[in-house]
Computed example of a mutant assay.
Amino acid sequence: MTEQKPRNRGIYILPSVLTTFGLFAGFYSIIASINGDFTIAAISIMVAMLWDTLDGRVARLTNTQSAFGAEYDSLADLVSFGLAPALLVYLWGFSGLGRFGWLAAFVYLACAALRLARFNTQVGSADKRYFQGLPSPAAAGVIATMIWLKIWAFAFFDSDVISIGYIGYYLGAVITIICGLLMVSNVRYYSFKELDSKKASFRFLLAIVLSLIVLLYKPNIVLFTGFFLYLLSGPFITIIGINKRRIEKKKIKTT
């Protein structure tokens, strides 16, 4: 009978400090939303996403992963990518939609919490190439850049007969609910974790440089497009996988 190696329960300073930076960015986004600085609130969520990416990469590169770090990271993610985006969209435009507005924000928040809880229970057993469900940072990115881009900018134009703006707010609420439901779905999303161990080619590095140039020129447009395409990629990958399995089953039956 072999003894099981106990999980590392220590606290590593560097990843935890980076996680704290991300938590602060999420907290600052909440403060900015309360103060009505919605663009700053959206950008703060993007900053939190950067710190969230760095703490995971640093933990893997320095071999400082721990149970404490995983739990702390999830709690920080719930604030930065769950509560902060939900409060941002509600205060930005959903507060005028009545019950539907706060329900849309709550559905997103609840789904973010469920997604993070499920992720923690699957650590070590899930396929590292894919995420099960839309990652909470990506969902928060869709919402934050959607507001930063002001995709429903026509919400500011009113008519004497009907407030055209509410059409845009309802559209935003539907997108928010879709993001929440995709987080708790079984739709697969590419994780990009395999890129950590691969050598980058010259063309890949050139593509990154060009992408950064375009990003700096129109960050809100580029980021929203990227996050929205990633949101759509999950159903596309899942459908392709289902079709492949069906073809393989047919081949097995015919042989």
Rank of each mutant, 00 (worst) to 15 (best):
F106S: 15
E3Y: 06
F224Y: 04
R129K: 15
I221Y: 08
L212Q: 07
W102E: 08
A59N: 01
A140C: 08
K250S: 11
V47Q: 06
A86K: 00
L205R: 14
L97D: 06
D55N: 10
P235V: 08
G133V: 05
G226S: 04
L83H: 06
L195Y: 14
A25N: 08
R129W: 07
I177D: 02
I178V: 15
V214S: 08
R118T: 09
L229A: 11
T64L: 08
P137V: 07
A126Y: 07
Y108Q: 04
I178D: 02
Q132H: 05
I143F: 02
S44T: 08
D77L: 07
P6R: 08
I162W: 14
Y166G: 06
G36C: 06
M49Q: 02
S197A: 15
S95H: 13
S80D: 08
G241T: 07
G241C: 10
A105D: 04
G241E: 13
F106Q: 14
A155V: 04
K5H: 11
R246H: 11
P6L: 10
L88E: 03
L97M: 13
Q4L: 12
Y130A: 10
V107R: 01
V107K: 04
E194I: 10
A86D: 05
P6K: 11
L23E: 01
I13Q: 02
Y130N: 11
V214A: 14
R99K: 13
I247F: 09
R118S: 11
